[in-house]
Amino acid sequence: MSNTVKPSLLTGVLAQVGRWGIFSFTAARWTCSAPPALGSVLWEAYQIGVQSLSIVCVIAFFIGSTIALQGYYAFREFGGQNLVGIFVALACVREMGPIVAGSMVAAKAGTAMAATIATMRVKGQIDALEVMAVNPYRYLISPRLLASLIALPLLVVFADFITVFAGYLVAVYQLGVNSGTFLENVATYIGMRDVFFGMIKGGVFALLICLLSCYQGYYSQPGPEGVGRATNRAVVSVCIICIIMNYLLSEMMYG
């Protein structure tokens, strides 16, 4: 005799988006109205940066070298293999740097946020915070939000540098491109503006990663499976939304 409406896929997704919107708004309001202590923000930023730096560097190295390889062979089709520097510089600084940094922070720091907060939710520690009259948004989410806003743009600069460096190594030592030509191409086609835009992308990714991961953790289902589910959903939703956002940002910045 139950007459409750079964939620369809569409209404389910819409409800999730709406709840996420409210969550993000509340987090932003608490961050602005009662900023967390500088010490805890810097500590979190250090955590996020150190957690993700080594893997960002490793992945950036592989991506940069592969981009150089692909660019070299693609441009050789019409005799422009010496232009590989342009390709490497544009692809790495404008797109791959922010994406490598963002996806690895999502995979390491984002999942850590989701797992920590979900564990706290599952074990009743978030309720305990509220009972102790400590606002969980202010205590758990605001520091992480500001910290990722500091750490991710810096990681983007690291990723930019290492992708281009790896591209240089492969182009010059494996493929025999002239070192001077490569560097000149990089210097001509990439300016501070591109690096700066990349950092802005990093900042937007940081907001999305932190808010989505914390959201998935905050509304985690009970039990140890709930923690796993929250972590998994965090990575996947962050990846998809960051890549869509990346297209829109690229369209605005370079389109």
Partner: peptide, 14 residues
């Protein structure tokens, strides 16, 4: 809540 203390089922220690 400032004047209330609560002991949770498993302690809910951080």
């Amino acid at each position: 809540r400032r004047k209330i203390g609560m002991l949770f089922q498993d302690g809910a220690l951080l």
